[in-house]
């Protein structure tokens, strides 16, 4: 009997370290999986500066047709991080879509029953840096960031059900340009830390953010004649680190 007690006590003592590990306080770092990139979805108003083309001499065909409101632009961006130290840097690619419809015009200038539309698909390749060190190390949930990149925007204009053709010229093409973006993200993890950890351990999503950013882009084939798809715009969205 005494031998059985001795064995039992010995087993319990041996198990104590494991028990302590199981119920002890665990730091958040222990749950965090490696970060390798990001996924960003954003929306915003996109108003191309088409009426700024010099050859138009102050005429405003875009405003006359579509009015003052912007196109609704939706974009998806994928990022790959190649530096994670004092902040994070990497490369991102993005693709978006925006369209705007309005009534075509009769010769008299009156609205026709037919619709005309401008459609754009901005594609981007950028380098970015975000200062997330303060968020992770000091608990300040704001992450400022900046991007600089190349843009290519395929575009086309429709009238009725088809692409518009004027004097034998089909209204479709693509414009090169560049863009710079600055913004600030709010780290959502601070609102629900436990949920954020579960999100990481379950799905591999390290952090999630809401953000607002301002983009300055010149998309006019670097100053050549033709469409000016440049814009100055605010966009808002959700970003996920994975």
């Amino acid at each position: 009997m005494s031998r059985a007690w001795a064995v039992s006590v010995a087993m319990m003592v041996a198990a104590l370290p494991a028990w302590a590990q199981d119920v002890g306080v665990v730091s958040t770092e222990q749950f965090e999986s490696p970060r390798s990139g990001g996924i960003i979805v954003r929306v915003g108003g996109y108003k191309p500066l088409l009426d700024d083309e010099k050859a138009l001499n102050g005429k405003t065909p875009f405003k006359d047709t579509f009015g003052d409101s912007s196109l609704l632009l939706v974009e998806l961006e994928l990022q790959r991080y190649f530096y994670q130290g004092i902040g994070t840097a990497g490369v991102g690619v993005s693709a978006g879509y925006g369209e705007k419809y309005a009534a075509a015009k009769l010769e008299s200038g009156v609205d026709a029953a037919e619709q005309t539309a401008l459609k754009v698909v901005p594609l981007g390749l950028n380098l970015f840096y975000k200062f997330d060190y303060a968020a992770f190390e000091w608990g300040i949930p704001l992450v400022p960031y900046g991007k600089l990149g190349l843009i290519y925007s395929p575009w086309w204009v429709t009238k009725g059900t088809d692409d518009e053709v004027v004097d034998g010229i089909p209204a479709k093409g693509g414009k090169w340009g560049w863009g710079a973006t600055g913004g600030v993200s709010f780290l959502l993890d601070v609102l629900q830390p436990r949920f954020a950890r579960d999100f990481d351990s379950g799905l591999g999503i390290n952090h999630s953010y809401l953000f607002a950013e301002y983009t300055y882009s010149d998309v006019d084939n670097f100053g050549k004649p033709g469409f000016v798809l440049s814009s100055r715009r605010w966009m808002f969205g959700l970003a996920l680190d994975y």
Binding site: E53, P61, F62, D64, A104, A112, E164, V166, A171
Partner: peptide
């Protein structure tokens, strides 16, 4: 009727 591109070309646009 004129779509946007026709209006743009008529206004002198070079695209």
């Amino acid at each position: 009727s004129n779509g946007f591109y026709a209006a743009y070309r008529e206004a002198g646009g070079q695209e």
